[in-house]
Amino acid sequence: MRALVIAEHTNSALKDATAKAVSAAQKLGGEVDVLIAGEAARPAAEEAAKLSGVAKVLLAEAPSLARQLAEPMAALVVSLAGPYDALVAPATTNGKNVMPRVAALLDVMQISDVVSVDGPDTFTRPIYAGNAMMQVRSGDAKKVLTVRTASFQAAGAGGSAAIESVPAAADPGLSEFVSEQLAKSDRPELTSAKIVISGGRAMASKENFAIIEKVADKLGAAVGASRAAVDAGYAPNDWQVGQTGKVVAPELYIAVGISGAIQHLAGMKDSKVIVAINKDEEAPIFQIADYGLVADLFQAVPELEQELAKLGK
């Protein structure tokens, strides 16, 4: 068994999702290599080489790989797939974009959003927004997996793998990068934050999210939102937590003005401690919250900020 992890990185740095995918790949029970595909991506490769348990880092650099578009990425991964029994990527928007293309080119049925590696060919994944867990055994010669990062611990440091340059495959020339609008924030990433505080439709405006952001900054937390809040334009798309947004499992999840639709619960119910603040005491979110506070969020959230200040936060 030999696995190749397709890394998530920014060329200049490795993302935490990669370390989690490495740890999922290690559970397959064999050697794990990491592929860094990008442009001027040696710094990311050097970080990957330090991950514990990585045997080798493959570094493919080309202008066409700078943004990791699906068409050249899939061509590259397929060109390298030969010796590997499994191809693994984190279930980020990148992983979700690239891996099914790889799987189809290899005539393999991908297994998406793996939450547990139960054996070299057996995996568990959520279906129906996490309302059921399905264990499957793959009959394909190669396994193509995306793994849910919230379900795996990041591989630690302490490795010293060799970095080997590999040629980029020919760019199929189907797509071209135009631009990117990325939110700039000093807060931690939603999917790797230890604390997440999210607002729902009851926030009632974009401006009102400021009271949540103040608490987030006191706690060093990431800010999330329910789909209703995003659809209403109160919060940006990439804050959405839920079945079709991001899946998070922080130490502490604070749901503010979120009723708790099953699609939202799918994105946060594996959090260690859940707090719900909602003025409707019948809100379904209270059924899964460890601590519930029935209160008007416009009073409770600023008060929370003050209480945290008293603790010296």
Binding site: N94, S175, F177, V178, S179, E180, L182, N237, D238, K246
Partner: peptide, 11 residues
Amino acid sequence: EIDGGLQTVKL
């Protein structure tokens, strides 16, 4: 829609 924001590509 990508993690962190939006990306525009020409296909």
